[in-house]
Amino acid sequence: MDDIRDLLADDDVFDPLAEQEEAEELGQVSESQDPEDDGVIAAPLEQRPQKSGEQAPAPERIEKLLKSMPGQKRLLLRLIDHCREAKNGEQMDEYTLELQKYCYSVYTPVVLRELLQEAGAIDYLEPDPPAVEELELDEADAAEVAAQEAAREAAKIQTPAVPLVEDGVLVSIDESKVQHEVMIEGDEELTLDYLEVEEREPGLWQATAAGLAIVDAMDDVKATRELLQREPDYLGVYHRILDFCAQAEYGRSPKEIDDLVNDDPLLQKPRRYSGYFVGRLEREGALEWRSGWVVTDAGREVMADLGMTAKEA
């Protein structure tokens, strides 16, 4: 009986290296296939090559951000609008937390600002460095200063090299900020050199032109009108919801709106529920959640345009 291995034709045996060898012989190995050029798998993130190419323009990045966070869109736009005039971090925090009362987010105010900054909607303005008073020195003083400088330079040469933190980067310190304290150890006097942490003056947040352009281009009245025009069959339902919410100072609960429209024959086929309408009105800026659904200024303007009043309804 033949050895089973003899029954297998060489060509049929899978050899993972065969193709490679063949390709090498034919000179078909692409650059990416060259093992020497292959990257390292699971390398630390910071060691991976950065994506090349320029960053998308700010308006594009802002639109992308707003699209990726539909639930936070209005909050983000308000934050941009709020720093139309520069605000400090504390003011921004306060305003963001106020908005987040009705628009819960896992993001902290600081993270929201970071997202807006990365998208190019707001900028962080560093405080101006303190103005240095230029002193006019007479010749004697100038010579003394020059001598001191020379002495400092000489001292620097004698100072042992500071260890490297990264290749070629020294931990540089401002010698003028070094403080000294004399300590006694036994009979010896020692001088302790130390640095004290300085508070950094906070900067300001200011909306960028690209950010403000998107805020200014938002037209809730127009968007709501277009919504109503798009769905003429449901015009009456939209009217009833807007009017119902406008009547209550603190807004209406979802349950109340359910009771108002869910049994409407128009909503039976196709079956629609109040959430369908409320969601659309909210998205276009006619309704807003404030522990209850309330009509926004834009919503009221649309109602006035349509000649709707609570009384008439």
Binding site: P163, V165, I173, D193, Y194, L195
Partner: peptide, 29 residues
Amino acid sequence: MRCPINTGNADVDTGYKLFHRYLSNIWER
């Protein structure tokens, strides 16, 4: 805290200098 910079140990001095640099540049993020 005070950041001593002449302790005689290069690693300790570097550590404190870096702490000083970071802590002096703290901002909201």
